[in-house]
Simulated assay, not measured.
Amino acid sequence: MSEKHLQTGDDLPANSGKLRLFAMRFCPYAERSVLVLNAKKLEYDLVFINLDHKPEWIFNFSPKGTVPALEYEAGKGIFDSNIINVYLDEKYPDIPLQSSDPLRRAQDKMLVEQFAGAQSAYYTAAFNAQALQPDMVENYHKGLGILQKEIEFRGTKFLHGDEPGLVDFTIWPFLERFEALPLLGKAEFTIDKSKYKVLTNYMEAMRNVPAIKAYALAPDTHAKFTESRIKGDANYNMLDSSAVCCMRPRKKKE
């Protein structure tokens, strides 16, 4: 799989007949869908796009040009990670990732909603630090506290149970990125093991899940990408060695 991000003027790769996910390598929302595809052991192709210089054809699959977008049939797409992931879980039920209990599914959705404050604080801290307010740091730690309490209350290895499920794969991409914040000079966002023992144990278990292990990036990698984006020149291709020595000229529009 190439880590190169296609951009304006690049051709849409030929469809192989598999499911195809359009993503951005450093996007947490796209990662949610990658993890679900991995967990369900589905065959799929992954195409990365440059979100600053979007290829024209992405709008055929995602009207706003956002990722992730899933091409479920040739030329036909659905977008938004939550919509995609529920679709995948219902379409391919062999490895179910949601509870059969309607109440537990509702509780999972409420937990994700309660965690949203921590996600919002992360985005401000990472990409708009000058706008960071004390209450945002409080909301961040409040979100971590709610998550830790729920993990402890459920008493299972993962939120979904003995194996991770949709709720785990929805929350994880942000936990993965939270660990980059201290490397960006935001020590107040550190996930202290002495304070978050249950949560850090959960995070360690998640790191070892095959679906995650195959795609996760280290905190310093996330930090480097964030720094490049802050400078106004997001280095989308930092993981693609071919982009350095073998990058072809951009195709000119006719």
Rank of each mutant, 00 (worst) to 15 (best):
S99E: 14
E179Q: 11
F158V: 05
K186M: 11
E188D: 15
I49W: 00
K253W: 15
Y236V: 00
I151T: 00
F153K: 09
K40I: 12
T8L: 12
L97E: 06
F127N: 12
K252L: 15
Y202W: 09
R25E: 02
V137C: 07
A74M: 08
M203D: 00
I151C: 01
K149G: 02
F189S: 00
P96F: 13
N237I: 03
N237A: 08
Y202T: 06
L175E: 08
A205Y: 15
K18V: 13
G75S: 12
W172H: 08
R250D: 14
R250V: 14
T156M: 07
S100W: 12
Y44M: 10
L42K: 09
A180Q: 12
D45W: 01
M110F: 13
F59V: 07
D52E: 06
L144N: 01
F169C: 15
P13A: 10
P13V: 11
E227S: 13
F174G: 00
H141C: 04
I191G: 07
V167S: 09
E188Q: 14
A23F: 06
Q98F: 12
D101T: 08
N82M: 13
A243F: 04
K40A: 12
M238T: 09
V137N: 07
G77K: 05
E138D: 09
V47G: 04
F79A: 15
D80R: 10
L239H: 05
F225T: 00
E90V: 02
A205G: 05
K91T: 10
L181Y: 06
K40G: 14
D220H: 07
L183R: 11
Q133P: 12
F61K: 02
A218Y: 10
G155C: 03
I230D: 13
A214D: 15
T190Y: 03
N208S: 13
D220P: 03
V34A: 11
A214F: 05
C27H: 05
F59E: 14
P102A: 05
D94W: 03
R177N: 07
K64G: 02
I230E: 05
R104M: 09
G9W: 08
Y196E: 10
A126H: 08
F115A: 01
Q148N: 02
L175M: 15
D192R: 03
K149P: 02
T8Y: 04
Q7V: 09
D220A: 14
V86M: 10
D11F: 13
S228A: 08
R250H: 04
H141S: 03
A118Q: 03
L159P: 05
L159A: 10
R104P: 08
A106W: 13
S100A: 06
A74K: 15
G165P: 09
E150L: 01
N60S: 12
L166P: 11
P249G: 03
E90D: 13
T66V: 07
E204R: 04
I151E: 06
Y122S: 10
L184E: 02
A187H: 10
E227R: 07
D220W: 09
G145Q: 01
D192C: 00
Y92H: 13
L217E: 03
G232R: 00
N128R: 15
I146M: 04
